[in-house]
Design a protein around this nucleic acid. Sequence first.
RNA 1: GCCGGAGUGGCGAAAUUGGUAUACGCACCAGACUCAAAAUCUGGCGAGCGCAAGCUCAUGUCGGUUCGAGUCCGACCUCCGGCACCA
Length: 850
Amino acid sequence: MDEKYFPEAIEEKWQALWNRTDAFAVSEGDPRPSFYALEMLPYPSGYLHMGHVRNYSIGDALAWYKRLRGYRVLHPIGWDSFGQPAEQAAIKRGVNPRAWTEENIVHMRGQLKRLGLSYDWSREIAAHRPDYYKWDQWFFLKMLERGLAYKRVSPVNWCPKESTVLSNEQSSGGVCWRCNTPVEKRDLEQWFARITDYADQLVADMQEIEAGWPEKVLKRQRDWVGRSEGAYIDFAVKGSDERIRVFTTRIDTIYGATALVLAVEHPVINELLKDSPLMNDIQKFAARVKTERARQVEPGAEEHKEGMNTGLLAINPFSGESIPIWVANYVLMDYGTGAVMSVPAHDQRDFEFAQKYSLPVRQVIAPVSHSQEPAEPLSTHGTDQSGEMHQAFADYGVLINSGEWGGKLSAVALREMSKRAEEEGFGGPAVTYRLRDWGISRQRFWGAPIPIVYCKDCGAVPVPYEQLPVMLPETAEFTGTGESPLASVSEFVHTACPKCAGPATRDTDTMDTFVDSSWYFFRYCDPRNDEAPFATEIVSQWTPVDQYIGGDSHAVMHLIYTRFWTKFMRDLGLVSFNEPVKRLLTQGMVTNRVEGTEEWKAMSKSLGNGVDPDEMIASYGADATRLFILFAAPVENELRWSESGIEGAVRFLRKVYTMVWRWQPRLLNEKAVPIDGEELTAPLRQLRRKTHQTIARVTNDFEELHLNTSVAALMELFNELASVDVVPESAQPGEVFAVREALESLVLMLTPLAPHVAEEMWEALGHEGGLAKTGEWPSFNAELARKEELEIPLQVNGKLRSRLIVAPDVDEETLREAALADEKVRAFTEGREIVKVIVVPRRLVNVVVR
RNA sequence: GCCGGAGUGGCGAAAUUGGUAUACGCACCAGACUCAAAAUCUGGCGAGCGCAAGCUCAUGUCGGUUCGAGUCCGACCUCCGGCACCA
């Protein structure tokens, strides 16, 4: 051990040792209880950023903590190495995506190692390697077998900047998840994964993970799935055998329906109007609506409602009334049934539409007063003084103008009217979802090829399992036109039909990279398996993941796909649980001021506000960088980067290091002799107390991942230690004992936060074998942690007036008497009536006077 | 518009869940060491009044519950996120 703290030398030394000894490798044979600590795997963009550093520092602290607590900890890392940036680099700079990716991985692996993260590197995986994407293809074929993968033409989200298709999740908010470009709609034939089959489970199974997942993530997923209970109702079309089914959540308002409105794509239009003179106009209208939808629309842009009367009439099955059938732009084909009953009085959209086209507005729900007063007049709920409605009344209430249903409450009518529809055979209760199927085809080179072959005789033929993987060619022509570059690689495209051996062509699309990341953490458990994606008996020893850590930007992308994928794998018999992740932590962003503005934004190259982790490591060391990033804010908060704070972390480590150095000769030369507490002076008894209190506090903080307060607690312990007036040269044996206990506990608890310097100090204190293999988390003695005396605040009328030092076991009555006898208290109670005295044992006394 | 989350010193933040508000750190101020500076160490650091002991006021605002509220309840203000014609 050097006299001075040189992080560079210490970190190099221990990283080399960890590497050489595979210090963090784990195996299934290990009899200790298992713990799976997982962080979201990085995309190999080329450079680690501070967001990664934060993510991995949190995960590493947890992994170390659990390891020291006696768990066999699976803590793996890999690369989400398929995806857009590699291909953009190919288009822009003509580089080979594979070479580019591999180089980036080499560089970033070096950065991770310089941070000293405790990964089991033998399990490293990369999505772009054939031994990985083979299993993406395998899963695709399994989905196909089970009817969970299918192909269809549909309007898809298209990012014009990246020339690529996006899933609904990737274009949430109407913009591309990568580049924020507003998305367009395009008709394209592509493969879908039937995530909607699992919509119900994605909501219902949330109760299994409620305790461990942040509510905001669950809420976003719940909203995204958009489960909605209501009813189907079939409206007969007058003069035809056709019936048009609508979905409504407000069947109680059906007597107020004054039109039936169809989406422009609704198939019944062609059926019913093929001979109508209006058909031409309606087709033109439909085409215009579609173009408008395809146009880039800024989110929040004003929507205008437009429609056309078809001249047809529909019959309301409840009232028997005939109402006009319209087509309109505000009805969407891909939600519900693509047809709605329009109830202007009780739905704002219908109201606006009715206003524009002068459709009748008929009120059928009256507000219910909560008092005994008669129902409130509607004027407070949507009409002005003239009785004219100016907005819809969308609340529940009591039915009026609704035939035999009049007088019933909405809640009752909703139930009974659905039931009636079912009995009469024109509908019934129904549940719909906002969630749509997951479009997984991408017109991209740098992804897992979709294992399908098209034969003019046999149609779309799945590639047989034994022919997997369908290998990605070395390279292709990157034009950036939007067509898959694979289509230009003729030796890839042309193949033999697996069924008839005739000439055939391959599907030239690749899979969304979110397929790769949906199951990668199962592969870590069994990373070299070439028979299957993983062996169930191995995976079951580690999964579900105990703690997953990553940003919340994936709340409705990765985190919903991986839940779906797990359920699919469960149905395949590969795993035996519903949910892949027990506890999820969404850590806050690391932001930095954008040059020349007041804005704090996530660090990024394009904004020029990035901070290079390598520079931080070079200036302050990996330990200080990690310690600072964990100390600066609670893990889930945004962390506004400031370089000045990191100096504090270095100072702290240096002080601890120097203290170890000063005590080292004395501690090495003397055996640890347990001593009786009575032999110690008060300050040293206080030091032991602080040591044990700190162990209790820090242990609890680690369990809750309150890492910032655990650092604060360690600093307090150090301050206590530094304030003890004992020098190594002249310390008595009892004093050496108390100092040793404090110092060793401090070093052990510092290990997850600053592992290199902790190892160095541990070794200096005479321990062999290294913390990585032999370290044990300190345990605390509640007896020693208990205070010898308590400071009891004394209040008069709830205001602090004095303090009292008492023994911890003092009884209530003594406390009460002592409080009342206190001079300062008496100054406030003198001459006043004491109404009562509140005594909270060990806490406080409050004297209430009048 | 709808749905979430959050407002505590100059700053990042603590507060055992209703019991001494501001722990820990950063920044700042003063002192020691130094020819000097850096580093380091010591002390100070919510606001107001006071020579002082101390008093008063402070956790976005206003009310409420309670012996006691940063914490619970009600209304409002501000900021940040999410969704956006979903029937």
